[in-house]
Amino acid sequence: MSVSAPPLMVEAIGVRKHFAGVEVLKGVDLKVGRGEVACLIGPSGSGKSTFLRCINHLEKHDAGELLVDGQLVGYELRNAKLYERSDRQICAERARIGMVFQRFNLFQHLTVLENITLGQEKVLKVKDDAARARARELLDRVGLAGRDGYYPAQLSGGQQQRVAIARALAMDPKLMLFDEPTSALDPELVGEVLDVMRDLARSGMTMIVVTHEMGFAREAANTVYFLDAGVIEEWGDPREVLTHPTSPRLQNFLSKVL
């Protein structure tokens, strides 16, 4: 094995997952390099969100290999055995993987600024002043400078989602996961969130985005994966995959979405 090539940011080989007897992921393969943007599309119930949640170990996968930055997620390979990692180790790994949720999940009892400083202070043990400075810088970056003292309930959905992105970025992640970040938003608010995500992609952040926004997938993604019934049905360059789909299922899906 050559040492020259840095490991892929995310590599999935035959990842499987079932809930109560129903197999949701039936062997998913996927490769995302550093600085790349991958979009996961597919009908609801196809396992997109579940796969995303496996990547930061919010869900445990049952079989297959899942590597983030060259390391197995949730397990350690020693003496040809897989050892389950301790909660503390898993949490430390997870801290470097940002996640943005469909329903924002901002901490309702904390102000915008506190939402962004909490993880820095309690997990990364950053000093209060530095955490605040970083939070303000990130708020400025997502276009919400001066909203420090607001509570989440006082913001629009689009603003809340941008705070959620800032909260994830504050942990200095090497990878960002987006779970349908614009699905809970009013149509006129979708744009402001997608703009922030486009900026992020341009800055070289590695991103995996579960989305129904085909426009975003077409311009921002390096690769599009079409997930259907727990398997990757088709994948490739977005211009190719989205304009000339080969599988009948993707053709059918796109005809409904576009």
């Binding site: 919010l58 997870r94 470097r96 940002g98 996640m99 999940n105 901002l106 997990v123 942990m171």
Partner: peptide, 24 residues
């Protein structure tokens, strides 16, 4: 979702309980 968000920024169960769940 509050627990998931706290978990996703790397908080352990005790921290999640103390800083996110309990106050709410």
């Amino acid at each position: 979702g509050q627990v998931e968000a706290a978990t996703s920024i790397g908080m352990v169960r005790r921290q999640t309980l103390r800083y996110v769940v309990m106050p709410q």
